[in-house]
Design a binder for these strands. Structure first.
Lengths: 343, 343
DNA sequence: TCCTCGCCTTGGATCGATCAAGGGGGGTGC
DNA sequence: GCACCCCCCTTGATCGATCCAAGGCGAGGA
């Protein structure tokens, strides 16, 4: 029997359970939070009462007393229209699931993408969340310094590029390793002229990924000059960049900083009647849905987002434990999802 | 100045603000919740104190007293790998934003996709959320009956297909109108043999969309027999279905129940060297990222998800107001994003 | 002068859980 | 027989905001 079947519209409280089980409130509380303190038979009696009444501790009351909400805040910024960055979806799910296993829920909030601090303040001051997951760190991370100064626990998905001496916890994926993986995969197939299409220079992530390509090329004494292009993250830019590179450097393969750019490359190849996958190989980045469903499939670097979520939650648990344990940064390695676009 | 700059680590309370402003606690409370009760100058003084201290009412305390959390729960199920259903991303963002404007936050929880009720119970009993947004209604909606029996406020994104007499609030997009829009668009261009590739018959949504295609065809006295196929929602199925239809019915255009299936069609056309967009037109459904970035672009039916979010929140506000106002269902019309795949 | 009214204060109770301290009964040791 | 301890459980206070009821005080009107 559950409380919702009863006449009363309010859920049962600790006191209700206590009365039914013939014990005190505190004993019920202990049964829930420190079962080992009770004699086995009392524990069983209380647990029976709990399930008979369908009791679940009132969150608000518990939060008030313990000064913890068991909520993790995360700013939710959607993927840009016209791009292929569907990673958010997969990541959010992993995070929600992992957090749930540790007793946390994820609270989303919106914020002006222009204002990196927007939204955090309110949640923090009203003690609505215990901690934050900071993900929007593509161009520096002012949130980190700000949150640190407010003593707000948080973990960043993304390295503190702009402030190497930052001490906060973070988890990131090794983009350079990913690009290197992609490039090596192409070089192993005999390609020697592997081009790079990446983001503009002010993107830390873009430069990191690019360095992986450079590293792989140089490791085999292959030149990189004239084979790289840095543009906006749009399909049109990728198409244009690929077109120029094809004219001027005639590469036999492309590694791109995103699936969006890679789609641009496919487009450029199509324009010229070049059969991609057979004549020219293409590798993207992020293993978006686009990479998965484009006819033949686009080979792409896949970020271990499930693992990222696990590490983030692990770090958060450390921060929220008493005493707080501040782990160092965690760098995970991506994998390569090979499809027809590269062989 | 903000409290985090002070020595004390605890945020300021109502009493702190009262002391600083030289008024009573009750007056501060009124300044926050019923400003019109205060004389303008006192109000200003209190507001100054509030901003000087950086005060924000403690959520837990307020929740406890008012029996409301201002949180909306939503089960977050990720898009399936290998499909093009990126709609969730856009929808969640719209929802978070719209809800935020009404003072609500969105709390995500995970749940076994097999168990439609999983996760709801806990949040409900612990009074962690004020209401739910139910989205996973693709195959019936047992959640609705269950939540209703628990008197839990909720709004569904999706019609109560299996229980037409259900009285709960819902918002949905007219899939039939979308398919009709797509079909008419093709018929207007002179196509007469427009094929349909949809989902298996047990999908209410799929049958709804299909009816739009049938309606449009019959409105112009065009036959539909032999021109339809019902398969799983995967690229491979779409490809196979398109291949069979091309052999047996030689359609000049395809309307699909999803972008995933449409991608399958593009694949099948590519296999035969048919230039899609020029020789054969294709229209997808959901305007996913894939439709937007595939070379040339895939024409697709676009759901007004921003509007859906607005209506959902509006309905929720009605349900949560006193007395509750239960609005009827809301059916919104999709639009067509025309790209090169259809002309 | 008295009354009213607008604005604010006062003191208390309340939401439902947890914290900190205390109490009673049974066993052990001397 | 007495002191002591330990286990198990109970009691009262507390978290911070809101709700409620009663009342004070000054200004303006009758």
């Amino acid at each position: 029997m559950t409380w919702s079947g009863r006449l009363s519209l309010t859920p049962p409280t600790l006191a209700d359970v206590a009365e039914r089980a013939g014990v005190s409130r505190q004993t019920v509380s202990n049964a829930v939070n420190n079962p080992e303190l009770l004699r086995p038979d009392t524990l069983a009696r209380v647990q029976d009462a709990i399930s008979e009444l369908g009791y679940s501790p009132n969150r608000a009351a518990r939060n008030l007393r313990t000064r913890a909400s068991h909520l993790i805040g995360m700013k939710f910024n959607p993927a840009q229209e016209g791009t292929a960055n569907a990673a958010m979806d997969r990541f959010v799910h992993s995070l929600v699931e992992t957090a749930g296993e540790s007793g946390y829920h994820v609270l989303l909030f919106a914020g002006d993408p222009e204002d990196p601090l927007g939204g955090y303040d309110d949640l923090l001051r009203s003690t609505a969340v215990d901690a934050f997951i900071v993900t929007d760190t593509y161009l520096g991370n002012p949130q980190a310094a700000w949150l640190t100064s407010r003593r707000a626990p948080f973990v960043a998905f993304g390295r503190p590029w702009d402030t190497p001496d930052a001490t906060h916890a973070w988890v990131d994926v090794d983009g350079a390793a990913g690009a290197e993986l992609a490039t090596d995969h192409l070089l192993d197939q005999g390609h020697t002229r592997v081009a790079w299409i990446g983001w503009r220079k002010d993107s830390f992530i873009g430069e990191d990924r690019r360095s992986g390509w450079t590293r792989a090329m140089h490791a085999r004494d292959l030149p990189t000059t004239g084979l790289a292009s840095r543009v906006e993250d749009t399909v049109a830019s990728g198409r244009e960049a690929a077109s120029v590179l094809l004219d001027e450097a005639s590469p036999s393969a492309f590694v791109c900083a995103s699936d969006t750019l890679a789609m641009g490359v496919l487009h450029a190849l199509g324009d010229r009647g070049i059969h991609w996958g057979r004549d020219v190989a293409v590798v993207g980045f992020d293993d978006s849905q686009v990479a998965q469903v484009v006819p033949g499939g686009l080979t792409s670097v896949r970020q271990p987002l499930e693992q990222v979520a696990v590490e983030l939650v692990k770090a958060l648990e450390g921060l929220l434990s008493t005493p707080p344990v501040a782990g160092p940064g965690v760098l995970l390695s991506p994998t390569l999802a090979v499809r027809l676009s590269s062989g």
